[in-house]
Design a protein around this nucleic acid. Structure first.
Lengths: 222, 222
DNA sequence: TATACCGTGTTGGTATACCGCTATGGTATT
DNA sequence: AATACCATAGCGGTATACCAACACGGTATA
């Protein structure tokens, strides 16, 4: 059953607004402003803000609040972190998951239409990486993967999802799964590290190139 | 400057109470009870509880709250997670830290009196592992190491800190630092994984053996 | 005696009032 | 005209009042 408490609803609305970039990175917010805008009282608004702060989507700005800016250093660090987390998760998944579970990864990849809306493609990518972590059977790896993907969501959304980059992403994922299904941990981990490293270089290059344009749109890019 | 807000003070008091085992694992709490006991209002009490929940030290219990129980599966998963995090942190530290920074790890080990109070020895162990993560220069590895050590703190505290286990811990740390100072990543990472794996087996064996005794003290052990 | 029900007290969730602090804009002074 | 100061509006932090939901104990009934 879905939580319909005010706090949960406000949290979901703010989170969606941030991740969809409807709320501008770096935008300053006041609790009383949100209270009015969201037709709720400050108590659940504050609870939602606190939770978003813990996830890195909201930050304190002096005594106030702001939507977390786009942070190149954070993006770099997150992708380095993901290399570590996912390589380890793949190793554990290979030693712990059943053939059927590993095969389900292929089904996930097949299920997504690579020419569909960018939103779906990005979410499918997130789901894939989180599912690999889940197969490791270590909840801390799952949490780390989930949190990383969430914090990277806006940056990935900004990235121009060219046909070439989509194909590259899909091919990378397929190759990883193929190695996993052969229980070839060394190859699978190497492919994952390469995949994320290429993603990192591409993302950072895109961000650097688009920096001016993003700032012109009012985005805080640090 | 230290934050002296009610929320911060309450958070610190509860956190200290939990980690020192003055508050019983599994103990049920009510917001109004804490409000009375801590001479504050529910608002900062709730904020502190929420923060502790995010750190894994407090849990929801139905609609209420409880001190996080001692969880064997969690302990196992956390130590597996730490193997991954610390091996990676060591590799990055070796490629990024200066000789002086690596030497400072030795100074940390020298500074602690292995026959001193258990509290100090445990904190020194935490500081050492977190400092290694810091030298990786990746804030997400630092956060992961910090969070893991915090969640493991009570279990480590429960462990009988015998003279033999203290010596084993110190020798393990020294060997890791020696390999790091020689920039021998492969050896250092292998030693770290072995060190944590032995810690895990020792901790889990101790917990399993003490299970009954702990439950007799009222601790929830799951 | 066993069981079904209902009243009551207590809970967490929410709304709101109050506080001290800070940032800001206008005014008075040099 | 420049600068120092002060009144004030609005902020986050805290305290408290109110609500619906739940848990529990006693009572009435079979």
């Amino acid at each position: 059953m879905t939580d319909t408490s005010q706090t949960a609803v406000i949290y979901e609305r703010l989170r969606a607004g941030i991740l969809s970039l409807d709320m501008t990175p770096g935008e300053r917010l006041t609790e009383r402003g949100l209270e009015t805008e969201l037709s709720a009282s400050r108590t659940p608004v504050r609870a939602a803000l606190t939770r978003l702060e813990a996830e890195g989507l909201m930050q304190r700005d002096g005594r106030g609040w702001m939507v977390a800016p786009i942070d190149l250093a954070e993006t770099r660090d997150l992708l380095e972190y993901r290399e570590i987390i996912e390589a380890a998760a793949i190793g554990l998944a290979i030693s712990r998951a059943t053939d059927a579970e590993l095969a389900s990864l292929d089904l996930m990849l097949e299920a997504v239409d690579p020419s569909g809306p960018g939103e779906e493609v990005l979410r499918a990518g997130t789901d894939f990486h989180v599912e690999v972590a889940r197969l490791s059977q270590n909840p801390f790896l799952v949490a780390a993967a989930t949190g990383s993907m969430t914090r990277l969501a806006r940056t990935r959304w900004l990235e121009v999802q060219t046909e070439a980059s989509r194909a590259h992403s899909r091919d990378g994922h397929r190759a990883i799964v193929a190695a996993m299904r052969q229980r070839d941990a060394l190859t699978a981990e190497r492919l994952a590290v390469e995949h994320i490293r290429q993603t990192r270089e591409h993302l950072l290059a895109t961000l650097e190139a688009e920096r001016r344009r993003l700032r012109a749109r009012g985005f805080a890019v640090v």
